[in-house]
Design a protein around this nucleic acid. Structure first.
Length: 499
RNA sequence: GGCGCUAUCGUCUAGGGGUUAGGACGUGAGAUUCUCAAUCUUAAAACCCGGGUUCGAUUCCCGGUAGCGCUACCA
């Protein structure tokens, strides 16, 4: 019986993980979980200048937040440890030496200037830019002696004399003419191995059966396949995922705004919404009509054969739609807990919330959550409660149309007369008052409610009064960092401002 | 310059030799709710171009074009 399939996600800890990489991680995870295989997390930190330990921790946390887990990795170890490339330098060195010994690789003494000259000539002659193979012809023993004598040398792999073929689960069979593939450097003259080499050594050592990664690696794959051959190891299956683009059809980057997982988390996007959205970028279920999936459903449906090879533009609006969907689906208590930090950050909540404030706050969130795309919009939305100003209510241009109506003044006057001394105003009482205002003025529908809304919250649109009014009244009696004005206060302020 | 990948509504996509080319986001309209949002209904909206193969190509093949990637002693 064949062994379990093994796939890996191998990020570099050089910054915050962005959606492109997260999508790669997700597809790896979905594939592995679907196949009941092993998911390996490996840290590619051979770029010593840019790698930082703190990014590694963040990376793991971001991945966990998204809802991914792994079976082997730097934080949990595993049978093919270590899972951090800087801890594997010995393997790379001994393997490279072995390849030289077996004459599958050779020392290269060419200088940067020589190589640069070759490159320029290739461009001028319209030929592929590949290494001339000058040092390939050197006598291996001579070369070894020169190295022993202290001469600087890189190690290059010999690319075979036949076309390099491999299979890609997304793109199908791929073939490169060997004339186009250069004898690549696998170890720099400084002794530091290069990415294309270590990735193969590691994938082979970790018995990776499926390499699922971004398609920016597609052109590197023939080099890597040659490496597997030189190593005498089986070539894995590949799956190259398309690039994620920004609205301008350029590769998505920080320039396009929020692109890291942490950004989305901090904006108040739910992990299941992000996961769902990312899954739909470049993949669709058979039938293609379903849009919302739980992680378990994604695992059940996912297959690499259904992954689209073409690049995809990241669409915030659709992410927001999914996020709204999942906000509505969530347990209220979860929403309350997620929403709280956003209010605290704006200084709207006391450091210690007693049960009354707590209860009131949860109702505020329940009232407003259906109105937002992301949680960081919540405090703004809550302006109708925390941030009332009669002056702006009157001057705001969105309300100009309301004031332009001749029915507005009588309604405001009638409402103020009836409600000004109600304290607190109950939802029931409000209803009777509105009935009276209606009878008195003859206004109904928008003519009736828009003016009242402007008086009470400064805007002609907003949540239902029957829920909103009790919240205003109760809020005004709570000990909060920012005083919530009661209905009575609002009416008084408004009528004064109106004069 | 060389090589590679890609090409269906604005966007994500389904589909596939003969279809009214399907769904979703977004947009417009209508219904509903005191308003807005939500919800429901509905409308507009696409097969890059040119050759071939074929009775018939959006679908298969070739070419072009465009976009992207690789072409490093970066990852």
């Amino acid at each position: 019986m064949a062994g379990k399939i093994r796939a890996r996600f191998a990020p570099s800890p050089t910054g915050q993980i962005h959606v492109g990489n997260a999508r790669t991680a997700l597809f790896n995870w979905l594939f592995v979980r679907r196949q009941k295989g092993i998911f390996v997390l490996r840290i590619e930190d051979t770029d010593l200048e840019r790698s930082e330990a703190r990014y590694e921790t963040q990376l793991l946390n971001d991945l966990k937040w998204l809802g991914l887990d792994w079976d082997e990795g730097p934080d949990i170890d595993g049978p093919y440890r270590p899972y951090r490339q800087t801890d594997r330098m010995d393997v790379y060195r001994t393997t490279a030496l072995r390849l030289v010994e077996e004459q599958k690789a050779y020392y290269c003494f060419c200088t940067a200037e020589e190589l640069e000259r070759e490159r320029k000539r290739a461009v001028a002659e319209h030929t592929p830019q590949i290494y001339s193979g000058k040092c390939r012809k050197l006598d291996p023993d001579d070369a070894k002696h020169r190295v022993a004598a202290g001469e600087a040398a890189a190690i290059r792999l010999k690319i075979p004399e036949h076309p390099i073929k491999f299979h890609d689960l997304v793109h199908g069979p791929v073939e490169f003419a060997n004339e186009v593939v250069s004898d690549l450097i696998i170890v720099r003259s400084s002794g530091v191995p290069v990415y294309n080499y270590v990735v193969v050594v590691d994938d082979a050592a970790m018995k990776i059966t499926h390499v699922i990664r971004g398609d920016d690696h597609l052109s590197n794959t023939p080099k890597q396949v040659a490496l597997y051959e030189a190593l005498g190891l089986p070539v894995p299956e590949f799956a190259h995922l398309s690039t994620i683009l920004g609205p301008d059809r350029e590769r998505l980057s920080k320039r396009h705004g929020a692109t890291s997982i942490a950004n989305f988390r901090d904006m108040g996007v739910l992990p299941e919404a992000l996961m769902n959205y990312l899954a739909l970028l470049g993949w669709a279920p058979s039938g293609g009509t379903r849009e919302t999936f739980t992680p378990q459903e994604l695992i059940k449906e996912f297959s690499l054969e259904r992954v689209t090879p073409s690049p995809a533009v990241f669409d915030m609006e659709k992410l927001y739609w999914l996020n709204r969907h999942y906000i509505k689906q969530s347990q209220p208590s979860r929403i309350h807990n997620l929403a709280r930090p956003f209010f605290e950050a704006k200084g709207l909540l006391p450091a210690n919330m007693d049960s009354r404030v707590e209860n009131w706050f949860t109702r505020v969130v329940d009232l407003l959550a259906p109105y937002v795309d992301q949680f960081d919009q919540l405090p703004d939305r809550a302006g109708i409660i925390f941030d009332y100003s009669a002056g702006t209510a009157i001057s705001h241009r969105d309300n100009a149309e309301v004031f332009a109506s001749e029915k507005t003044r009588p309604v405001i006057q009638a409402f103020a007369n009836l409600a000004a001394n109600e304290s607190p105003l109950t939802a029931e009482k409000f209803k009777t008052i509105m009935d009276e205002v209606k009878a008195e003025t003859g206004a109904k529908g928008k003519d009736l409610f828009h003016p009242v809304r402007v008086v009470l919250i400064g805007s002609h649109s907003g949540p239902a009064f029957e829920k909103l009014i009790p919240l205003l009244e109760e809020g005004s009696t709570l000990d909060l960092p920012v005083h919530v004005k009661s209905v009575r206060e609002r009416i008084a302020e408004f009528m004064t401002a109106l004069e």
